[in-house]
């Protein structure tokens, strides 16, 4: 069997074999290959170095490289597992794996908790919740009085903080999500089931066959 394909394929820094990533995530090998096509597109949109930079992530999300957003920043930071300011291919696939429809619900709940634990204290604190509500209002051009924001935050906090210690821990969060399952709806991307149709990757497929 020929191997001209693999010899000629140049991969980006941080590239990992689809078989390795498929073994660690809910994705199949061909889905990982399709994600590589998507990754190449995203990681070359501004700086063609095979890494997703913050501006490229913002461009993909908002069609605007300069649009700052608290939540997009948090997602980027969580995807950037090595915390070196860029998203590598392996990080991209492992993180997106949480959003796969077949990923364990516990992983989705845990990811959302880390997302909302803005200051990495291991808790979601009242101030953090208020900061996120204010960020959402600003993003949506919604204006609510500070009193109303306080009421929304207080009400939610009182429901979630069952131990009443002024902060939401992982156990309380899990319980709160079980009562309000819609809270992790955005942790599932149905697109990921059809990723091979959206981003077919014939060349890389041939390479994997060669390896096998």
């Amino acid at each position: 069997m020929g191997c001209f394909c693999s010899k000629n394929t140049r991969h980006t820094p941080g590239y990992e074999e689809p078989t390795v990533l498929a073994a660690e995530t809910p994705f199949t090998v061909s889905e990982v290959e399709a994600l590589y096509e998507l990754f190449k597109k995203l990681s070359s949109s501004i700086i063609d170095d095979g890494l997703i930079h913050k501006e490229e992530f913002q461009l993909a999300l908002f069609k605007n490289r300069n649009k700052r957003n608290l939540f997009a920043d948090r997602i980027f930071d969580l995807f950037d597992i090595k915390r070196n300011g860029v998203i590598e291919f392996g990080e991209f696939v492992r993180s997106l794996g949480v959003f796969h429809p077949n990923a364990p619900e516990a992983d989705k709940i845990g990811f959302a908790f880390r997302l909302y634990d803005l200051r990495h204290t291991g808790y979601i604190e009242r101030e953090e919740l208020k900061e996120m509500v204010l960020a959402l209002l600003q993003e949506s051009d919604l204006i609510l009085s500070d009193d109303i924001v306080e009421v929304i935050v207080d009400k939610t906090f009182n429901e979630a903080d069952t131990k009443g210690d002024g902060r939401i821990d992982q156990e309380e969060w899990k319980e709160f999500v079980s009562k309000n399952p819609s809270l992790i709806k955005n942790m599932t991307l149905p697109y990921l089931k059809d990723i091979t149709l959206a981003f077919p990757s014939f060349v890389v497929s041939a390479e994997v066959e060669d390896l096998e």
């Binding site: 999300l61 997602i75 959402l136 929304i152 009400k155 429901e159 309000n180 819609s182 990723i195």
Partner: peptide, 26 residues
Amino acid sequence: AAPVTMNAFELISTSQGLNLSSLFEK
């Protein structure tokens, strides 16, 4: 009165920054 009865996390989860489906748009 609708926003007052709204769950704050529910509100946050509508953020465009959390909607990763945009990554898949061609």
